[in-house]
């Protein structure tokens, strides 16, 4: 279990705040820009950072994150580079939890046991492996637990009451509620429907529940942070990076963008 994740939610709760979870793709638009963007995120209001691990065939992602992954791969961002980004980030930040998010094949090629050990020593706190449902997770989950990494489980609008307990068994850190049946970057979800789902989940677990997928604007952030313990903004930030990748002050611009999202939250 990651102490950073527990402490982060405890401290937010004690201040009556919700978590802003920001997703950026490792190595997008390149490794040095990515390092700068990551280090600027906590002071701009990111409470938890998800770092995408690029993959050629991201079947759950929409066009924004697909192209971010391809940009990163074009600069040779492999898992070794992803872990070195985490390591650099940890040199000056000890409190902000880092979740690595991606697909199973690159991890399988790296060796799952070695990967979770290296990820933990680099300073990561949790893993989201999009194409690894609980049924297939035995190849990595026990090693992740042993290394102190949380396996962050996804719950979706299609998760019925028969399946929910199965997902909750072995879940740790927090739960990620996928607000829409769709890929990342889709159109926004209906906040009332999501509120009902999250309320249902909350009756069966004490873990924090964050909502993600299709949350883009400060208005979305404001609405969804009322009904969840946190919100994830991914494609909107990634798209912002794509639009401004050529500009010299990219990290500052991204910071300003993230600050605007965070202010919507506390409003």
């Amino acid at each position: 279990m990651s102490q950073r994740i527990i402490q982060r939610f405890e401290s937010l709760t004690s201040r009556g705040q919700k978590a802003l979870v920001t997703f950026v793709m490792a190595g997008d638009p390149d490794l040095s820009a990515s390092t700068e963007i990551l280090s600027a995120l906590p002071s701009s209001g990111a409470d938890i950072i998800e770092i995408g691990m690029p993959f050629t065939d991201p079947m759950a992602d929409g066009p924004a994150i697909q192209s971010a992954g391809l940009r990163a791969l074009a600069h040779g961002t492999g898992l070794t580079e992803v872990l070195s980004l985490v390591q650099q980030f940890r040199r000056h930040n000890q409190d902000t939890p880092i979740i690595l998010m991606g697909y199973f094949n690159p991890i399988l090629a790296y060796n799952p046991q070695k990967f979770v050990q290296d990820a933990a020593s680099a300073g990561a706190d949790g893993l989201i492996i999009v194409d690894l449902p609980p049924e297939e997770s035995n190849e990595i989950a026990p090693h992740a637990r042993a290394a102190g990494l949380d396996m962050i489980r996804l719950i979706t609008p299609t998760t019925d009451s028969a399946r929910l307990p199965h997902i909750l068994t072995g879940a740790s850190g927090f739960l990620y509620y996928v607000s829409i049946a769709g890929v990342t970057g889709s159109k926004s979800a209906d906040v009332n429907a999501v509120a009902d789902h999250i309320a249902r989940i909350k009756t069966q677990t004490r873990l924090p529940v964050v909502a993600g997928f299709g949350i883009k604007t400060p208005a979305d952030v404001s609405a969804f942070s009322r009904i969840a313990d946190g919100v994830v903004v991914g494609s909107a930030i990634v798209q912002y990076i794509e639009q401004h990748q050529k500009e010299t002050n990219l990290a500052q611009r991204v910071s300003a963008h993230v600050s605007a999202l965070k202010s919507a939250m506390s409003a």
Binding site: A60, D131, P133, E135, R153, L154, I155, T156, T158, T159
Partner: peptide, 20 residues
Amino acid sequence: ENGHFGLYGGRYVAETLMPL
């Protein structure tokens, strides 16, 4: 029963697709 042929096969899909 889980769709494995020895080491291969299985159901490596996003959670949204699992119930389907």
